[in-house]
Every structure is written in structure tokens, then in C-alpha cells.
Computed example of a mutant assay.
Amino acid sequence: MPGHSKLINYLEIIGFLDEHNISFDEINSPVKAEYERIETDSRLVTKNSVFVCISGFENDGHDFASKAITNGASLLIVQKKIDPDIPQIKVRNSRKVAAILAKLFFNDPTSKMKLIGITGTNGKTTVASLISKLLLSKNKKTGLIGTFGYEINGKKYRSERTTPDIIDLNKIFLKMLKAEVEFVVMEVSSHALALDRVFGLHYNAGVFTNLTHEHLDFHKNMEKYAQTKFQLFENITDNNGIAIINIDDKYGKELYRKINCLKKDISFKEGDISIRDINYSL
């Protein structure tokens, strides 16, 4: 079973959705069935797969359901009923359901590691790289996920997006877990937060760098952009984690006031962590 630790049966899926308070309708529900994997890309579907139909900005996964069925999908997660006479679970938000079911299929790998999320307009890659290198220098087994792919204990791999799809992410996390990784440092983009690509992950710490006038074609205005970034810290609060926030940034100061988790502010002026005596020489 590629990427998964065990077969998942239909009743487990239904029970897991109930446990997470997800409302759903069953269509052509099977009496008894087991599934080997979950995918959001029809090209990766194999026999006995669950295929999640996600409506994107350019493509609609529902349009690829027939291809997924041809490739072996035996259960569809949909937001609208598909014509083929195949078991389907109809939900409101298939992106979130993909994230929830990924936890079931991959046995929730981030609950077994320390996950550090880095968000902000600028500086994510630099901060994530520095934290990763610091952890490695302390002989900590470390994973890194970012703009240029991902790393496992210093070995580099390529990925297509700054924050991969939630299924791809769980495959990476499982690979890291098998390599006995203790800490994962991860760049978290605003698009990933808005599109639920990181929904349900267990963040133990988060860093906010800054917010500048970018990506407004997607977020429309700075307020919506900021609120999307702040979602990461709601997750950290839920997991009793710690937040490190740049309060020299206007939105960082707002975030620091809002959140109720353990937090440290960082500043070139006055803060819990003050940046002073900078030396740029090598």
C-alpha cells in the first residue's frame, strides 16, 4: 500500500467525519468496502482509492471523477453528486474533508513531530532555512518544507508548490517520520491557508515575519490578507504552542494583541527578543 500504513474501511471514514463534526450525505453507500489510499489527483488514483473532488480556480476535480473511476477509484468525496453509480460522500467543503481524511489514512504524522510554521510576505525562506540549520547543528533530525522543495536531514527533494497539496504534504510527513525526524520547519503561504492546504496539521510553533502589499489580486485587500495569515496562529493556540511575532510590523503588532497562546515579540526596538549589534561581516 503506497504511502499508507493500513487499509481503511468505509465505516471508519464515516465515523471519522462524524468525530470531526462534518455534515455529509451518503450516496450509493457500500455495505462493506476497504480503501488503500486517498488522492486529489486523478492521475495518481489506483485500485481501491478514495478520490476527493476539489473545485479549484482553474480546474474542478468533479470533471476528473470519471478518469479517477477508470483508474480504480471506488469511493468519491464530492460537493455535488456525480452521475456514475459509484459510492459517494457529499460534503460542503471537500478541501477540508481531504485534510481530515488524510489524517486517518496517514495516521496523523504531524502529531508525532514538532511542526514549526513560518508565515509572512517576506523572509519565510530565510527564516525557515536558518531554523532548520540551527536544529541540524544541534544534532536534531529535521525536515524542511519550502519554496525550493523539501529536505530530510539535509537531503534535498523537489516539490511543485511552496506549500504542497494536503495529500502530498502527508506523504512527505510520513517519509520524514520514517527517517525519524523530530522537527519540521515549514513555510506557510497565505494561499495554503486560504485554500485549506494545511488544515488539520498540528503546529507547535509559528513565526510571523511581516505583511506587505503583495498577493492582493487573490486576497483583495490588506485586512483579508492579514486575517488569512492569522489563521496559522489560531491553529497554534488550539495546540498550546508558541508564537514568535515581529511587532515592528503593523500587522504583527495587531496579531500579538489578538492571540491568546504563549507568545514572544521580536523587535529592532524593544521586545521580548531585541535585535541589536548587527554584524554583517563574514
Rank of each mutant, 00 (worst) to 15 (best):
L44C: 02
D63C: 06
K263A: 09
V78L: 02
V97N: 10
N71R: 11
S42A: 14
T110G: 03
I54F: 09
I259T: 07
L177F: 09
D249I: 01
A179E: 15
E34R: 02
R197H: 13
H215L: 09
I13P: 14
S42T: 10
R276H: 05
I8S: 05
M186C: 01
I77L: 15
E26I: 11
S74C: 04
S5H: 10
C53G: 04
L144F: 03
S55K: 13
K103L: 13
S66R: 14
D272R: 01
F16N: 05
S23K: 08
K103G: 14
E19W: 03
I86M: 10
A102W: 12
S190V: 10
T40A: 06
G252S: 04
K156V: 14
H191N: 12
V78N: 00
T125L: 13
G72D: 14
N210I: 05
K114P: 01
F208L: 01
C53E: 05
I89P: 03
N239I: 07
L262A: 11
E58W: 12
G143S: 09
V185G: 06
K112F: 04
G143V: 03
K263D: 03
H20D: 00
D249T: 02
K133F: 07
P84N: 08
V185A: 02
F16Y: 13
Q88E: 04
V45M: 04
E160C: 03
E160R: 15
N170Y: 13
K67S: 15
L211W: 12
F208S: 03
Y10V: 01
R276C: 03
T121D: 15
P87D: 02
I242A: 04
L201S: 03
P164D: 07
